[in-house]
Design a protein around this nucleic acid. Structure first.
Lengths: 208, 208
DNA sequence: ATATTAATTTAACGAACGTTCATTTAATTA
DNA sequence: TAATTAAATGAACGTTCGTTAAATTAATAT
């Protein structure tokens, strides 16, 4: 046998991406074999090389894609000028974007170490770009006196870790709605930077 | 050749632990081979089986050991009765304990997935125990009105993620001292749960 | 001095790894 | 209809994997 009736390169390519993402996130990059990916796609391992030159490039492509999407969506959503509003927009965006992409996020944070220097530098640069967006908000908020930011770098790292951490426990269909979770995290982020809001989520936060 | 002059089982065992920890954290459990560990220890791969029945048990033992130490140290350090003081003690303890054990922490959060069901259950139970300590503090603080905790579970997860995140950026000998970092994080944690402190770290926090 | 135990080696097992290559068939183009 | 391109197969490459077994030497106990 060779080419299969009805086979389509674009379909196979996206299946490879989908399956690789799930497997890498579940088992770790090194633990997943090309044969394992191929088997779930429904093809032989050698067929994957029609689409990616090697295993490493599948990972690079997945991470690149995720970071590009994150940055693009972030720029579109951060519309406010006021730093407090911007910080709330950022917090809500980060939760909303990441909570529905647990595998991509997990990979982005865990498998940078599996990248060879070239791929690593590319992804690290994109991440740094994203972090800079948050740091700028914090710096401006502190400067104008509406926030109390001890150290913008530490605050940015703390906020990002806190928000990204939602993926360690959230499972869809759980006790809390995504909107509710967004509210809770946004409120904690603002408070952590010395912004006093009169209401808590119990009375519905309506800051943005 | 066989037994080497001056060889000592206890020394070899602790070398295996040390090397495995570093390699697992750096490359991921699946990516590290027994021969790689052995080579860094200075023995042949087969010698490792004198001390651990298989690769998996090395990981289980490392994680078990870390969680035991964490829980023990935590109980010793949380001496206060007041929930606000206890929360600050917890935050400071978590930073202090974890910042000097980056490899153990990384492993504990990343390689649970590499564990077979039995080992997984054991480690997950210990982690849950630790999380419960924090949740109890938050519940008490909210009940007595000194904190504003929207949801104790979400707050606990958020605080732990934020604090643990210090290991993603901290490197010893950096711009900030460990004490300073402890201060900043403790302040953010307290504020995030609606606790108002008059001073910021800029004027030295002296809550505990 | 002898027997035993501790610590390690060398050699080997079958299985799985990422990847390459020549081949085969389906779909498209000329 | 013939030629070309796209999509896949199956076999094979050399390497490495975790693990086991038997043999060997050092240290300790009798």
């Amino acid at each position: 046998m060779a080419r299969i009736a009805g086979s389509d390169g674009e379909v196979t390519r996206s299946e490879i991406r989908k399956v690789s993402l799930a497997l890498f996130a579940q088992c770790g990059f090194a633990a997943v074999s090309m044969r394992q990916i191929a088997s779930q796609v429904g093809v032989q391992a050698s067929a994957i090389y029609q689409y990616y030159p090697n295993k490493q490039q599948i990972l690079v492509s997945l991470l690149q894609n995720h970071m590009d999407g994150l940055l693009k969506a972030c720029h579109e959503e951060l519309t406010a000028n006021d730093p407090v509003e911007r910080l709330e927009q950022f917090a809500r965006f980060h939760i909303r974007y990441n909570i529905n992409r647990p595998d991509e996020v997990f990979l982005s944070y865990m498998e940078l170490r599996s990248l060879e220097p070239e791929g690593f530098a590319a992804i690290a640069a994109l991440r740094s770009k994203y972090e800079t967006i948050l740091k700028s908000i914090l710096r401006e908020g502190d400067k104008s006196g509406v926030m109390k930011v001890d150290d913008p770098h530490v605050s940015a790292m703390a906020i990002l870790a806190m928000l990204t951490g939602v993926n360690t426990w959230y499972r869809s269909g759980g006790r809390l709605s995504q909107k509710k979770i967004e509210n809770i995290y946004a409120s904690m982020v603002l408070k952590s930077q010395g912004i006093v809001t009169e209401t808590t989520d119990k009375e519905e936060v309506t800051h943005v």
